[in-house]
């Protein structure tokens, strides 16, 4: 049986996949399931890195993000029979991601209320300013992590992952209008925080001197 398993191994470029083919003890009758698994991996795996990066920013913790991404893929695999081929697999995976993240947030963190987000904005909103491009990735990520999670989610989906408002609304499960207002506030908050970082580098002072 082992030889059959090896012979039936599909040619795939990824060495990890090759190993996974040989690692399991495959039962007879598994071929239908096997092709289903291949199809799922083909559709879903290319989005894993983006999902991980988004999860890391949403949770602020890489190892939790790893756990959540694994959970997303397991849930997606279990409900793959409900997925319609040709539809937006990426949006579907993100929807599962947000479901998992919200579940874990309830478990891991005190979920910040929207009222807290409003208070944050009142305290932090400043007039838009030009964001200097010398800011490091770490500066930008640190600022992103500071904005309330409701806004951060929308900024990540729309500005980073380039989902349409409609898709983002479906992923998060809120009306389009809410997406638009959260995006606007999230962008403003982020810009404000980046401006603060720039000020800490003495940029404003230089600019004022130049004027």
């Amino acid at each position: 049986m082992t030889a059959m398993v090896f012979q039936s191994r599909m040619q795939r470029s990824d060495t990890v996949d090759k190993w996974l083919d040989s690692a399991g003890v495959l039962a007879s009758g598994q071929s239908a399931n096997r092709s289903n698994t291949d199809q799922f991996e083909l559709e879903a795996m290319p989005h894993m890195n983006d999902l991980f990066r988004t999860a890391t920013r949403l949770l602020g913790d890489r190892s939790r993000a790893e756990d959540v991404v694994q959970e997303v893929y397991l849930q997606a695999w279990k409900s793959y029979h409900r997925f319609e081929p040709g539809t937006n697999c990426r949006a579907w995976l993100y929807k599962i991601l947000f479901h998992c993240v919200n579940h874990h947030r309830r478990k891991w963190f005190r979920f910040p209320l929207l009222r807290e987000a409003e208070e944050f904005l009142e305290a932090n909103l400043i007039q838009p300013a030009v964001v200097p491009d010398f800011l490091t990735d770490q500066d930008v990520l640190a600022a992103l992590d500071k904005i309330p999670s409701d806004y951060r989610s929308v900024v990540l989906l729309v500005d980073v992952e380039e989902f349409a408002y409609k898709d983002a609304a479906e992923i998060i499960g809120v009306p389009i209008g809410t997406i638009m207002s959260r995006l606007s506030r999230g962008r403003k908050a982020l810009r404000g925080l980046l401006e603060e970082v720039a000020m800490s580098y003495g940029v404003r002072k230089q600019r004022e001197e130049a004027i």
Binding site: V25, L74, W77
Partner: peptide, 20 residues
């Protein structure tokens, strides 16, 4: 942001185990 190199292996292993 760097993605951990073992993540793909971990996810694929979990899927295959679930499939089996």
């Amino acid at each position: 942001q760097e993605v951990p190199p073992q993540l793909q292996l971990r996810v694929l292993t979990a899927i295959r185990a679930e499939a089996q």
